[in-house]
């Protein structure tokens, strides 16, 4: 009887932990996706940066 009851409790906790785990995994995926979306499209690639610096240097001289 007692064991069955413990199982019920553990099942609830396992479900909660799995839910929190999934939320954390989704959070990581979202952070990754946001990073790619923000810096993607070559906007921050070394080549673009170098070209930007060259333009800034050219404008400054």
């Amino acid at each position: 009887m007692g064991l069955t009851h413990e199982h019920e409790l553990h099942k609830r906790r396992r479900g909660r932990n799995a839910g929190v785990g999934l939320v954390l995994a989704a959070f990581i995926a979202i952070l990754f996706g946001m990073t790619i979306a923000k810096i993607g499209g070559g906007a921050y690639s070394p080549e673009t940066r170098a070209a930007q610096q060259q333009t800034e240097g050219g404008n400054g001289s």
Binding site: H5, E6, R12, R13, G19
Partner: peptide
Amino acid sequence: TDASVTSPAQTGDAEF
């Protein structure tokens, strides 16, 4: 007690 272990109303035993 068994009741306190199994009661879903017990704080901290909430489901997701």
